[in-house]
């Protein structure tokens, strides 16, 4: 993995600091060309991996990249699935099974499963999971997706429920079908690592908030420090600026001092900010 990965929150009106700023961003990035321009800036600054949700609009970015394979030959997508709001709103409208049917490429499987006495066999759960993954992956056909992530809302829901085998099902499918590394995004990193270990998922890629002020590092700052020191996993730090609460230099300097971190994912809307982050990382995180 590259040391710097480019995130996509800024493109979709996600801002943990201000709703006004979030709205201004979603206006600015309404035209997909504005998104592509920023991605081009990042690419030209040497930030070549785009870690993005499977939002419908990402399909347009994919089309653009596919149309010019020469220009984007070193460009990698790290898809993060699912785009949760899509499902949450569908559940409110159609109920749980209605929503599932809406997103399943093949209704036959779930209908058959439900007819069988309203009980889902283990193979059905595996089947549904893998079909949902495949549906989300469709937009990336023909593009490089070396790491595929499960989003934190799903990871942490499964983690809380204790449905840990789902991590195994996801990991196996991603490896087998896409020859990709499975990744897990979480807000509860120490707890998740115990669960992944239990499932025999070795040296997993785990992306979580890691920042100097401990913002959204559940389980506590010390548990994160301890986990980074002692566990074997490939850590990606997100929210290193804690939504702007930590000045850039201070934030990057601190993250680069932590052990075991392989990459930092960050978002930016201008070439200047991309370059600043890149320069800070090059300075404080010598190769």
């Amino acid at each position: 993995m590259d040391r710097l990965l480019f995130g996509d929150n800024q493109f979709f009106g996600v801002n943990h600091m201000s709703e006004e700023k979030a709205r201004a961003q979603s206006m600015r990035f309404q035209d997909i060309q504005a998104v592509i321009d920023v991605l081009d800036n990042a690419y030209d600054e040497g930030v070549k991996t785009f870690m993005c949700t499977t939002h419908d609009r990402i399909a347009l970015v994919c089309d653009h990249m596919r149309a010019d394979p020469e220009r984007y030959k070193d460009f990698h997508f790290y898809p993060c699935m699912p785009y949760a709001h899509k499902y949450a709103n569908a559940v409110t409208e159609d109920g749980m099974i209605g929503a599932l049917k809406r997103f399943m490429p093949d209704e036959g499987l779930i209908n058959a499963a439900l007819r069988g006495g309203m009980s889902l066999a283990k193979k059905d759960i595996e089947g549904i999971t893998t079909l949902l993954v495949d549906a989300e992956m469709k937009m990336f056909a023909g593009l490089s997706t070396p790491v595929i992530f499960l989003q934190n809302v799903v990871v942490d829901l499964l983690l809380g429920l204790g449905f840990k085998e789902a991590f195994r099902i996801f990991a196996d499918h991603v490896k087998k079908r896409y020859n990709a590394e499975p990744g897990f995004i979480t807000m509860n990193m120490p707890m998740l690592l115990d669960a992944l270990e239990e499932q025999g998922i070795e040296n997993p890629i785990v992306c979580s908030n890691i920042n100097k002020i401990g913002f959204r590092m559940c389980g506590g700052f010390e548990a994160y420090e301890q986990t980074l020191k002692t566990k074997k996993f490939r850590a990606i730090a997100m929210s290193v600026y804690a939504s702007g609460a930590i000045p850039p230099k201070e934030a990057i300097e601190w993250v680069c001092q932590q052990p075991n971190i392989e990459s930092i994912v960050f978002g930016a809307s201008s070439r200047g900010n991309i370059r600043n982050t890149k320069e800070l990382v090059d300075r404080y995180w010598p190769k």
Binding site: M118, L120, I125, G160, F163
Partner: peptide, 29 residues
């Protein structure tokens, strides 16, 4: 999910009218 992860709480049972949700939870958790 949240209360199940709480150190001071044991979720002893869940109740719902839809069998398939219960079935999956029982089987996997």
């Amino acid at each position: 999910a949240m209360i199940n992860a709480h150190p001071g709480v044991k979720v002893a049972a869940v109740c719902d009218t839809t069998g398939y949700v219960l079935d999956v939870l029982n089987k996997y958790t």
